[in-house]
Amino acid sequence: MSSAEFLVQGFIKAFELIFSLNPYIVSITGVSVRVSGTATLLATLTAIPLAFAISFIHFRGKQALITLVNTGMGLPPVFVGLFVFLMIVPVGPFGFLNIVYTKEAMILAQYILITPIITGISLAAIKAVPKLIIETVYTLGGTEKDAAVATLKEARFGIITAVLAGFGRALAEVGAILIVGGNIAHTGSVGGIGEGLSETRTLTTAITSETSKGEISTSIALGIILISLVLSVNIMANYFQRRD
């Protein structure tokens, strides 16, 4: 088999897997979207209030918090994976939670990874709102709360971009969730490929394991889905950025 034939065969099989809604592939996609979606939701619920607190409230340790956010934006995922793993192993400080190799552990790792990203980008969006907008709120009789709401509205497209960037990052991340999630699928086989339905196996971690097993068409199918998801997120982010 020539290398061209090999690739063409791989792609044909990959599309078959996607369009036949192969249960193994579908379950992996489901886990990816659920884990990253939940992590993004929780990170957003933390990051936006945090960005507002940093922007509007004077408190001690603020500068340290900003430094923490900036550092957090560039954390290597494997480091976060290792850190979370050490916290949640049975002998670790949070061993009692009993979440090693679960979706919860993966959500926790991704939450730690993307909260700083969403906070950092939101902070920049809030900072870009002119001071005169806030003064306009005050001169029209608004309170500090009204000023915060008006700022949120002015910065809305930037904040949506921040959330999408966080989601994109979570979807594409592999190092951390591989360590804490373990890339587990159930035993047995569904749809003639791979193993049983995914437990903690995501698009990215499945690509690593399927490729090393030589299951090229399965990897290609997973890769196509991953890149389509990330691309759609980026197109959305781009759209909101241009609205700004």
Binding site: P130, L132, I133, E135, T136, Y138, T139, L140, G141, A150, K153, E154
Partner: peptide, 16 residues
């Protein structure tokens, strides 16, 4: 402040 209002020299406009 709620009893007065100021028209700024270069007014800021809400994006709406």
């Amino acid at each position: 402040m709620s009893r007065m209002s100021m028209l700024f020299q270069r007014p800021a406009i809400f994006n709406t």
